[in-house]
């Protein structure tokens, strides 16, 4: 069903017009219809498009062809950083007397504690563990938002009346005007042909 999709780039689309609309949205009433439509949009070769759902729909990533995020890898790195920071912090402050510059000059202060060795790894493990989790979790949330481009409070879609129900019970496909294959009338036609209950342009 790719007949409505433009085969060439939209050079006859005036830049002014492109600026006017953010894109075209199509409304669906259930995840089933959305998923089938998404598969078609994917096959049509669009790049700048997205589905908007009130909850994560199982299988939609595949239908859209979304690539796996690198988030877990980054979080792993952050966690390992936490472990290292935890160890260095404790070894430096409790087991060394070296001075180093960490924004200000700081010096370790080795104490004789209960006759124990200065560098005692078993005692350091809880704090290393906690810092691992702390860094991993905060960076997990932070990076998730960062990769998602959030917070973005003034997104054009948030101004659309119909789109209000994207967080309630409606399912949307939005094809953005910056997509090379975007051509307003044709894209609208295309979306209608996918069984959308409503199709409309979103003001930029």
């Amino acid at each position: 069903m790719t007949t409505f999709a433009p085969t060439t780039s939209t050079d006859h689309d005036a830049p002014a017009a492109r600026r006017r609309v953010h894109g075209v949205l199509a409304e669906f009433h259930d995840p089933h219809a959305l998923m089938h439509a998404a598969e078609k949009v994917r096959d049509a070769g669009y790049r700048y498009w997205d589905c908007h759902t009130p909850f994560p729909v199982h299988g939609l990533d595949k239908a859209m062809g979304v690539q796996r995020t690198i988030l877990p890898l980054l979080v792993f790195g952050a966690g390992m950083t936490g472990t290292t920071v935890g160890f260095i912090l404790q070894a430096f402050t409790n087991a060394s007397s070296i001075s180093l510059w960490a924004l200000v000059w700081v010096t370790g202060y080795p104490f004789l504690i209960s006759g124990k060795p200065l560098l005692s790894l078993p005692a350091f493990i809880p704090v290393m563990f906690e810092l691992t989790i702390l860094l991993a979790a905060t960076s997990c949330v932070g990076l998730m938002l960062l990769l998602n481009g959030l917070p973005w409070l003034s997104h054009p879609l948030l101004g659309n009346k119909r789109f209000l129900r994207a967080t309630d019970d409606r399912f949307f496909i939005v094809i953005e005007s910056r997509d090379p294959r975007f051509f307003r009338s044709r894209t609208e036609e295309f979306l209608k042909s996918l069984g959308a209950k409503a199709v409309e342009a979103v003001e930029a």
Partner: peptide, 23 residues
């Protein structure tokens, strides 16, 4: 934070949620 239910967001969101659960 301007959440708009984007599935590309949901994808990372679900990963992040899983990771948070695992942590």
């Amino acid at each position: 934070l301007g959440w708009r239910g984007s599935n590309r967001h949901w994808h990372r969101y679900e990963r992040a949620y899983l990771l948070l659960a695992a942590l």
